[in-house]
């Protein structure tokens, strides 16, 4: 329950945090709900924490130039209850309400979750399916990483050593677009054993992303292509599932073997697709 001793710096601005990051073995502390549990168990022992939780510039949800911009420091709870999100990006609100518990949602942030890139976290599936951009800032300035390029592996991202996520930029879906997130929770931790996010525009353009299934969240591009513009039926869902899971290293653990998780991925893909068609 007691972390190893560390230094602490409260960053007043993103630039200050970035400067502090370059000073060595340090970690960014946002909501702390991924980091502190690991530190309490001493699974992780950074020498320094840089607290960005007070940086107002990282918070809030706004509409800007055809995008919904979610500050990286916005909590799951704020996303779940945001009118803007509910109206224009409803599956973000639905998913946010499924993360952890109310206490976690009150303080855990979307940026922290994405940077942590837990293979069973919910947000990765959502940002992938929404084709979001992850805006990051480092000493080299601001850049935007496409969600599809962001999750590079098991707990790993395209985030540079001294970079911080500043915002998530989501293109506002065309009117009439349906979106849905379906989650089969691990009963103890309530992380996703399988999470499937799907989005389908009125012209049938479809995007699908999974979390929990493999080492990192991924877009099921082949399945998307097969379904786009095509009607959704039991048969097309079945073949989409085949395409989605082909070549995927499906994880197995205490709660779901690889075989069962694969089965669940198919079932939850069908649920999500049926909800958006």
């Amino acid at each position: 329950m007691i972390p190893v001793a560390f230094d602490y710096q409260k960053a007043g601005s993103v630039d200050e945090a970035i400067a502090a990051l370059s000073s060595g073995d340090s970690k960014i502390l946002a909501g702390g709900h991924s980091l502190l549990p690991a530190m309490k168990l001493r699974l992780n022992q950074p020498a320094k924490l840089i607290d960005i939780s007070r940086i107002e510039a990282l918070k809030g949800i706004r509409e800007e130039g055809g995008e919904i911009v979610i500050g990286a420091g916005t909590t799951h709870g704020d996303i779940a209850t945001s009118e803007l999100i509910r109206n224009k990006l409803s599956f973000f609100a639905e998913a946010a309400a499924l993360i952890g518990d109310v206490q976690v949602r009150n303080y855990g942030t979307i940026g922290g979750s994405l940077a942590h890139a837990d293979p069973a976290a919910d947000w990765p599936a959502l940002v992938l399916a929404a084709d979001a951009g992850i805006e990051v800032k480092g000493s080299g300035g601001l850049r935007k990483i496409a969600a599809t390029d962001f999750f590079t592996g098991f707990f790993s991202t395209a985030l540079g050593e001294n970079e911080i996520i500043t915002a998530i930029r989501v293109p506002i879906p065309a009117a009439g677009t349906k979106m849905n997130y379906q989650k089969f929770s691990q009963p103890a931790s309530r992380f996703a054993i399988v999470g499937c996010a799907a989005m389908r525009s009125p012209d049938g353009k479809t995007r699908i992303a999974f979390t929990g299934v493999s080492e990192n969240a991924f877009r099921a591009t082949a399945a998307e292509n097969a379904l786009s513009g095509q009607p959704v039926s039991d048969a097309s869902i079945g073949s989409a599932a085949d395409l989605a899971l082909a070549g995927v290293n499906v994880l197995g653990d205490h709660f779901a073997s690889s075989e069962y998780r694969q089965h669940l991925a198919r079932v939850y893909l069908a649920k999500a697709l049926n909800a958006v068609s």
Partner: peptide
């Protein structure tokens, strides 16, 4: 080894 929660 630095992998997500584990850094040891």
């Amino acid at each position: 080894i630095k992998l997500g929660p584990v850094n040891s």
